[in-house]
Computed example of a mutant assay.
Amino acid sequence: MPVVLAASVVLVVVTILVLYETLWLTSEHLAELPVPPRARIIAVVLAAFAGHTVAVWTYAGAYWLLVLKLGLGAFSGVPVESFEDCLFVSVVAYTSLGYGDHIPLGHARLLTGVEALNGLVLIGWSASFTYLAMERYWPLHGKARARPAATARRSATARKRLAQPVAEARQDEGFALDQGPAGSG
C-alpha cells in the first residue's frame, strides 16, 4: 500500500505539472501565432487535449508497472494484459467514464480513484483556461476576414464599437489601452 500511495502522490504532482506547463506555454505563445482568432481557440483546445493525453499515458504507464509488472493490485472483468489495456483503463478512470469492463481490485482501486479525482480537477482547469481564451479571442471573430473595401467604408463610430469589447477585456485584465499596466503612470 505505501508504494501505491506514494505513486499516486507522484502521479498527481507530475500530471498537474504537465498540464500547467502545457497551459502556460500555450498562454505565452498564443498571441504570437500568425493565425485568425478561431485558429487560436482551436490551438488552445488541441493543447489542452495534448496535456490530458500525456496525463492519461502517464497513468497508463503506472498501471502497467505497478499492476502488471509488480503485481500491486489487479483487475477483474475483461483481462488487463497489455499496455493498451492499461491505456484503456486509464482513459476510463481519468474521464470518470466508468464503463465497468475492468474492475480494480486491491491497490489498483486507490490508483484508479486518485486518477478519477485528478482527471476531474485537470479537465475542469483546462475547461476554465479554454473559456478564458474564448472570452479573449471571441470578440475578434470576423475582423481578420473583413474585406479591405468593406473595412474602408466603415465609419469611425462602427470601428470604435467593434473595438470596444477588446478594450473592455484589456481593462478588465488591468491594462489601460494607452498607458500599459494599470497604475504604471
Rank of each mutant, 00 (worst) to 15 (best):
G106N: 05
A149W: 15
S128T: 13
A176F: 10
A156M: 02
L162C: 11
V91I: 12
A167R: 04
Y131V: 15
A93T: 03
A146E: 14
G142M: 09
V89I: 07
K160Y: 11
G142N: 04
R159C: 02
A176S: 12
F83A: 00
S90M: 03
G124V: 07
V114E: 05
G113D: 01
W138G: 06
A156Q: 08
E173G: 04
P139N: 04
D85A: 10
P104V: 07
A156F: 01
S96H: 11
G124P: 03
Y137V: 06
T112E: 05
G100K: 01
F83S: 03
I123P: 02
G106P: 01
A156P: 05
A176Q: 13
P104W: 01
W138F: 06
L97M: 05
A150W: 10
A133F: 05
P148N: 10
A149V: 13
V89Y: 01
A182T: 12
A133R: 05
D178C: 06
A149E: 14
A167D: 11
D178E: 15
C86S: 02
A133Y: 00
E115C: 03
G142C: 10
H141T: 13
V89Q: 06
D178S: 10
E173K: 00
L111Q: 01
L132A: 09
Y99I: 11
A152H: 12
